[in-house]
Design a protein around this nucleic acid. Structure first.
Lengths: 189, 189
DNA sequence: CCATTGAGTGATTGACCAGTCACTCACGCC
DNA sequence: GGCGTGAGTGACTGGTCAATCACTCAATGG
C-alpha cells in the first residue's frame, strides 16, 4: 500500500508534523524550558528521531518561527482581501482584525513573545528579524499606507501581545481596561 | 573595624547587591537560562549564599523585576517633572524621553522582555502585572492624559522594546527604518 | 531471496543546575 | 576565655536535558 511516492515523502511529512508540535510546545514553555522530548511526545515520535529530522534544537525552533511568520503574513493577506480597493487605513484595520483572529489560540502569539526573549541565540534573532521584515514589508506594500501608520500597526500588535500574555481584561483592574480598550478579543482560550 | 551597625545591616546590603547582579544577569540570559551561579559570581558571593538571602530562584527574579519597575516609575516621575504644568501630551512625551534614557543600557528593557516570556510561572506573571499596573496608573494620574493617550504610550514602549531587542536601525533595512522612525535612540549601549 | 536504504528507537553519555546541609570563621558579649 | 550568633562556603545530590550511537524493522529493487 505504501507506494514509492508516499514512502519517499514520509520524512518530509514528519518534519511538518514535528514543526506543528514544536509551535505548540515552544509556545507553552518558551525556547529554553521546553525539552525536545516534549515536542517529540506531542508528535508521537521518539526524541532521537527529532534530531534526525533537524540538526539541533535551534533549527527546530527556527523552523517553527518561520512557519509562524508565514502564517501571519497569510492571515494579513486574507484580511487585506476583505478590504479590497478601500483606503490604506481601512486595509490596515482589516489586517489587524485578521491578525487578532489568527492569534486567538495564542500559540503563534506566545511563540513570538518567547522568540523575542531568546534573541541571544543569533539564529533566533535572525529568524525574528527576517519574519518581522516580511510582515512589515507586506503591510507597507499591500496596504499602501504611510510608514507612520504601519509603525502604529506594529506597535499596537506588540501591545496586543502584552495584553494576551498577561490575560488582561477590564476585570483585572481599571489600568488593564485602559490598555485593553478597543483591542480585539485577546486571550479567551 | 566592622562596627555593629555595619555588621547588622550586612545581610540586607548583600541582598541589594544581589538584586543588582540579578538584574544584570537575568537581563542577559533570561529567567530559564541564567543559573543562580552566574548571579552569585557577579555579586562576588557563593551560589549557596544566594539561597540564604532568597528562598529560591523565582523570588530572586521577582525581586529584580520589582526593582526594575520601581526604577521605571521613578524615571517617569523625573520626566514628568521636566514638563511641570504643561499639557498632558507634553508630560507623556517627557516621560517617554526619560524612559528612553533609563533603558539606554538595555538591562531594564531586556529584563522586562524576558519576564513577559516567563509568565508561565505565576509569581512572575503577578509581578509583571503589578509592575505594569503601577506604571500605567502613574502615567494616567501624573499626566492627566486620556486613556487612549496612555494606551498609545505603552504600545510604543513595547515597540521600543522590540526595536532594541533586535538592534534595529535604518541600516538594518527600510522596514526597520519604518519601525524605528522617531523612536529615541534605542540600543546604542 | 538477498542487499540496500531509510524510518524509527532504546540506551547512554556528559554536562549543567536548583537546592541542601554540615561546616568554618569572625565577631561581640558576658 | 569561652559562647552564641550570623555571615559565608564547599561539597554533594537528585534530576533534567541535548545530543549521539548502535541498533531494529519494513519495504523496495534486482
Amino acid at each position: 500500500m505504501t507506494k514509492r511516492g508516499a514512502t519517499l515523502s514520509t520524512s518530509d511529512a514528519r518534519r511538518d508534523v514535528v514543526v506543528d508540535a514544536a509551535i505548540a510546545e515552544f509556545a507553552r514553555g518558551g525556547y529554553h524550558s521546553t525539552p525536545i522530548s516534549a515536542v517529540a511526545a506531542k508528535a508521537d515520535i521518539s526524541p532521537a528521531y527529532v534530531f534526525k529530522l533537524f540538526p539541533g534544537k535551534v533549527s527546530l525552533f527556527v523552523a517553527a518561527l518561520d512557519r509562524c511568520y508565514e502564517l501571519v503574513v497569510h492571515a494579513l493577506s486574507n484580511g487585506a482581501a476583505r478590504a479590497e480597493g478601500a483606503d490604506p487605513d481601512r486595509i490596515l484595520y482589516e489586517m489587524g482584525g485578521a491578525y487578532a483572529e489568527l492569534i486567538a489560540d495564542r500559540n503563534l502569539l506566545m511563540l513570538q513573545v518567547h522568540a523575542q526573549s531568546a534573541t541571544d541565540t543569533p539564529e533566533i534573532a535572525d529568524a525574528v528579524r527576517r519574519g518581522l521584515a516580511k510582515v512589515t514589508d507586506f503591510a507597507l506594500t499591500r496596504s499602501g499606507a504611510a510608514g507612520e501608520q504601519v509603525q502604529r500597526f506594529i506597535a499596537y500588535g506588540q501591545l496586543c501581545h502584552l495584553i494576551a500574555t498577561l490575560d488582561l481584561d477590564e476585570h483585572t483592574g481599571d489600568w488593564a481596561a485602559v490598555l485593553a480598550a478597543g483591542i480585539r478579543h485577546p486571550g479567551k482560550n
